[in-house]
């Protein structure tokens, strides 16, 4: 089996990437000394430890042959995109359009759902959630905001 398809090898690599990245970013923060720990002391040490553990995990993968699990690819793209859409539309058009867009987009993650059902769901859900947060909890968020 190709080593790049081994779950353990890839998780080791992921740990190494994060560890090295953190070590590089925090190396400039001032290490200080054990007596006077600088802001970089703790994160840099953690980054190095993470890298070492990553190497151990990746080495261990040479013996185990566990395959990558199946990824839920379509929802994996759609759901974060729906959340991102909310963040982008909300300040420009207001809560209503952002909410409807998010519900519709998220719902598409399950392709079998009929669009009309999703629209009905969104039209019920979005105003009630807005009422709950804006009126119930006093979170200031205009329902429509055409002002740009």
């Amino acid at each position: 089996m190709n080593i790049l398809q081994s779950k353990d090898f890839l998780s080791g690599v992921a740990a190494i990437i994060i560890g090295v990245f953190v070590a590089i970013v925090t190396a400039g923060y001032g290490f200080g000394s054990p007596r006077q720990m600088g802001p970089g002391f703790f994160p840099f040490s953690l980054g190095v430890m993470l890298t070492m553990i990553g190497i151990l995990i990746a080495l261990g993968a040479l013996r185990s042959h566990e395959k990558l699990p199946h990824l839920n690819v379509w929802p994996y793209f759609v759901i974060p995109l729906a959340i991102l859409t909310f963040a982008l539309v909300m300040p420009r058009l207001g809560f209503g359009p952002a909410g409807v867009a998010t519900v519709m987009l998220a719902g598409v993650a399950e392709p079998a759902t009929r669009k009309l059902h999703l629209l009905m769901l969104a039209l019920v859900l979005v105003p009630s959630v807005w009422l709950l947060f804006a009126l119930g909890l006093g979170v200031q968020a205009p329902f429509f905001d055409w002002g740009f």
């Binding site: 909310f86 963040a87 909410g99 998010t102 719902g107 959630v129």
Partner: peptide, 8 residues
């Protein structure tokens, strides 16, 4: 979809 909206 409701959960996603509530999270946002």
């Amino acid at each position: 979809p409701a959960i996603v909206l509530l999270i946002c």
